[in-house]
């Protein structure tokens, strides 16, 4: 028995990793196909209607568009695996270089929002579970639901109007410019981060509350009360550890969204993140950049979900400490 200890967990992680890699492969094929099947000829689009057929044909050759689909996929994915995402069609710079700065900005904004939103949402969820049915619970529910019901650009403009235009506390344009200090970045990205916090809090808070309340009917909760544990201790020490799996999953989904789904907020606040880059590249038909962004977003979702799965297993003593 003891020789097998830890094995189930390790095997599970390994299996999830393999499934994740496979999913990533399928997504890369889909992304590639979707982009290739876009209507119109890319070379024609890039060069414009005025280009002569010879120039278009030459450009097609240069892009490798005259080769069969499978070969093009293999050379693209081969490049990606060695860190070469190709060159941007718009300005000829390597895509990897373009992405590097943008990815950093996106990660900064996502981390900023997550560091505020996750503890905040879990705390509000726990308090709502503690005082379920009371005024705090109801108020928290109404406010978070209101926040999630508004489109994010609406929240963004409201915040911009009050905190930036009327009160002048924070800048409305979040572009940090070249080599800003950390303090600068925090002030400048405050409004987009706050917008994102308001959008993601509801989901995580409601799941925290629901998962904890769901556990409160268990006999070991009654036992904790009969041992004289205070209501707050019952919620945090007895209920929360047994309600972590669904909470972790929802947190992972929301953090993934903070990285991959914030296009609108980035555009509204002119924040130079990946989302904005992707939108610009779609308009410019800058195919290599679009593909790279899509692949990165997919990888973020897969990695965070994998992490959530592993954490959910690691917080379950039945799996962590087999008989």
């Amino acid at each position: 028995m003891s020789a097998a200890q830890g094995h189930p967990l390790r095997r599970m992680i390994l299996r999830r990793l393999l499934i994740g890699l496979f999913t990533l492969f399928v997504i890369s094929v889909l992304v590639f196909l979707a982009v290739s099947l876009l209507p119109g000829d890319i070379a024609q689009q890039v060069l414009g209607q005025a280009a002569t057929p010879e120039t278009v044909a030459a450009f097609r050759r240069e892009l490798g568009l005259d080769e069969p689909l499978i070969q093009r996929y293999i050379s693209w994915i081969g490049g990606v695996l060695t860190g070469d995402f190709g060159r941007s069609l718009a300005n000829g710079r390597p895509v990897a270089e373009l992405l590097a700065g943008r990815l950093g900005n996106t990660m900064f904004l996502a981390t900023y929002a997550a560091v505020i939103a996750v503890p905040f949402a879990v705390l509000i969820g726990l308090l709502a579970a503690l005082w379920r049915g009371g005024w705090f619970d109801r108020t928290a529910n109404v406010l978070t639901l209101t926040a999630i019901s508004f489109p994010e650009f609406f929240i963004a403009y409201i915040l911009m109007y009050w905190l930036s235009v009327r009160l002048g506390l924070f800048p409305s344009i979040a572009d940090p410019g070249a080599s800003p200090s950390l303090g600068d970045m925090i002030t400048r990205a405050f409004l987009p981060a706050l917008t994102l916090v308001l959008v993601v809090t509801a989901h995580m808070m409601r799941m925290t509350r629901a998962a904890v309340v769901n556990v409160l009917g268990a006999p070991y909760i009654a036992m904790a009360r009969l041992k004289g544990a205070s209501p707050w201790r019952v919620i945090t020490w007895h209920a929360l550890p047994n309600a972590l799996a669904p909470i972790i999953n929802v947190i992972a989904l929301n953090v993934a969204w903070l990285i991959a789904g914030v296009v609108i907020v980035e555009v509204v606040f002119v924040y130079p993140g990946l989302g904005q880059l992707m939108v610009d590249s779609v308009t410019n038909r800058d195919i290599p950049v679009v593909q790279a962004c899509a692949l990165i977003f997919a990888a973020v979702y897969i990695l965070l979900n994998l992490l959530a799965d592993v954490l959910a297993i690691a917080t379950n003593p039945r799996l962590l400490h087999p008989r």
């Binding site: 268990a218 070991y220 036992m223 904790a224 550890p241």
Partner: peptide, 9 residues
Amino acid sequence: SAAASFNPA
């Protein structure tokens, strides 16, 4: 039921 009344965590 001790199995249900001990906290599994």
